[in-house]
Design a protein around this nucleic acid. Structure first.
Lengths: 132, 132
DNA sequence: CTGAATCCCTGCCGATACTG
DNA sequence: CAGTATCGGCAGGGATTCAG
């Protein structure tokens, strides 16, 4: 009973999406948040937005990220069809990670997230938060 | 960094944000994700995007959401300066919740999340897209 | 080099019960 | 009406170790 109307404005504020009354995985917003879900995930994506990377290049770019979480993230992102895994035969094993078309389309999404957060830090400091 | 897509706004793909190598709360993306963090949060915001609401109206709109989580979410969103709590004296107690200016600016963000998720459900069921 | 397996600890969220 | 208090289950994620 989902409405897959892509032709016209799938608007959020005014429209039919208001029928969603629970956090169902079928909601497009939930789908995107699920793709971005988990710590480090956005940083991995951001790194891949700059170009494809090997496993160790990702580790080098994100030094505090453990192997377990990195491989978890990559598996998760591959399952969400955000990253593509390119494995090559031979020795030593070479694997390249690159964003899919869909993954690249996350650029504007992350941009929107960045913009709001940047704006928030500009407006907010007057109220509370006297950081040491 | 092959091509610059548009403009030179505080862009994510191409530029200086790449210095962030860990999930620090100072990163604008993290700030926004923190504001949206938690189950039900986006649905509460979406409800408030339609207009201000009382506590019980929110409960009615989201029947499966428990009191604890709802008040948690509202407290969290108030702290993030996304919602404003308007409490009126008298009996019975009347409290109205409304989005702040910042909260209203989350509209486009949620829209971006929706768009990507809706697009993903369209592309995904078959195969991946052929490379450009 | 590229991961997968294990352990443990923390924090989330749901249900229930109670208060101003 | 509008919340808070408390408890328990479970999943997330960090460190370490092992494997192809």
């Amino acid at each position: 009973m989902a409405h897959r109307t892509v032709g016209h404005r799938p608007g959020l504020p005014d429209d039919p999406h208001t029928s969603v009354t629970a956090p169902t995985p079928a909601c497009p917003v939930e789908i995107t948040l699920a793709a971005l879900h988990g710590r480090w995930t956005t940083l991995v994506i951001r790194e891949l937005l700059r170009g494809d990377r090997s496993y160790s290049e990702l580790r080098a770019a994100l030094p505090a990220l453990s192997d377990k979480v990195l491989s978890d993230r990559l598996a998760h992102l591959a399952e969400a069809d955000v990253v593509h895994r390119d494995r090559r035969a031979g020795w030593p094993p070479r694997v390249r990670y690159a964003l899919t078309d869909q993954g690249r389309r996350l650029g504007p999404v992350l941009q929107a997230l960045w913009d709001w957060g940047a704006d928030a830090t500009v407006q907010e400091p007057g109220l509370r938060q006297p950081p040491p």
